[in-house]
């Protein structure tokens, strides 16, 4: 596969320590264009640390990162954002008291006028917002509605759409489906598949293996800061993954089963 040869993002031998605690130990990770990778593991496995390193919030102590084949070092989330990497957190993606369009354009406002007299171009921002709401499939296409009254799934989708609109090639979703209803979850995961078709790469961090399993191309399992499994989804069952996470089955067993 072409995406295998020149991955969009590749991490080699990433190690991160917090004092004596080793959060990540020599982790290799890669994701291709248009690929959806599920990142799973128990609490404290290092999922969030890995995500934060990818988006430049933390810097690794050892290891290298390559984006589109070039070696990169992110000193801040802004650096990563410039390259097209964004993370969407479930509970803090949007400001609840602000309208949809204000949220979408937060920190990337469209303005007109000169110098200090720049004024928000609300009409243009509203038009874009309506277009995005349409794409996501939200029925109430009012860009002035406060985000706080939207459902969790709608909020999640708006945050993802915002990232993509501003040119994200890789979107990391941190627990996108926790606290969502079944119907809402389906919508969000449906939107993820839709983006995949557009060639957007997605890293899905979740506790819910079944949600991950339903959309991911590949699944990566972390355990105590080490990568213990990295397999094509088609080759395993969700139960295999759960057993590995719960330490009821060793990763080797799963791999052996694969070979057989």
């Amino acid at each position: 596969m072409a995406s295998r040869e020149t991955p969009l993002l590749e991490l080699r031998g990433i190690t991160k320590r917090y004092g004596p605690v080793v959060a990540l130990h020599k982790v290799d990770f890669s994701i291709g264009r248009g690929e959806v990778v599920g990142l799973v593991g128990d609490n404290g496995a290092g999922k969030s640390t890995l995500a934060k390193i990818i988006v430049g919030y933390h810097q690794p102590d050892e290891g290298e990162m390559y984006f589109e084949g070039r070696k990169v070092r992110f000193r801040s989330p802004a650096d990563a954002r410039k390259m097209g990497i964004e993370i969407v957190y479930q509970d803090m993606a949007l400001v609840p008291y602000m309208s949809v369009y204000r949220n979408i354009f937060l920190r990337r406002e469209i303005t007109r006028g000169v110098g200090p007299f720049r004024v928000l171009d609300k009409e243009r921002m509203r038009r874009v917002a309506v277009k995005l709401l349409e794409e996501i499939g939200i029925k109430r296409r009012d860009p002035d509605v406060e985000v706080g009254v939207l459902s969790g799934g709608e909020r999640q989708s708006i945050a993802i759409a915002r990232a993509v609109y501003f040119g994200a090639k890789l979107v990391i979703l941190d627990e996108p489906t926790s606290a969502l209803s079944v119907k809402e979850t389906e919508k969000v995961l449906g939107y993820v598949s839709q983006l995949k078709e557009k060639g957007i790469s997605i890293i899905l961090i979740s506790h819910n293996i079944y949600h991950v399993y339903s959309v991911a191309d590949r699944i990566v399992v972390l355990d105590h800061g080490r990568k213990v499994l990295d397999v094509e989804r088609n080759l395993v069952t969700p139960e295999d993954i759960i057993e590995v996470i719960a330490h009821r089955k060793s990763p080797e067993e799963v791999v052996r089963k694969l070979k057989a």
Binding site: M92, V95, Y97, M98, R107, E109
Partner: peptide, 24 residues
């Protein structure tokens, strides 16, 4: 109401974590 800075003010008060994550 009508400037980018105003937008940031509302965001910072409404959810500082979100504002910070978006680069405000």
């Amino acid at each position: 109401v009508s400037t980018a800075f105003g937008n940031w003010i509302q965001a910072v008060g409404g959810s500082p974590a979100t504002a910070r994550a978006l680069g405000v």
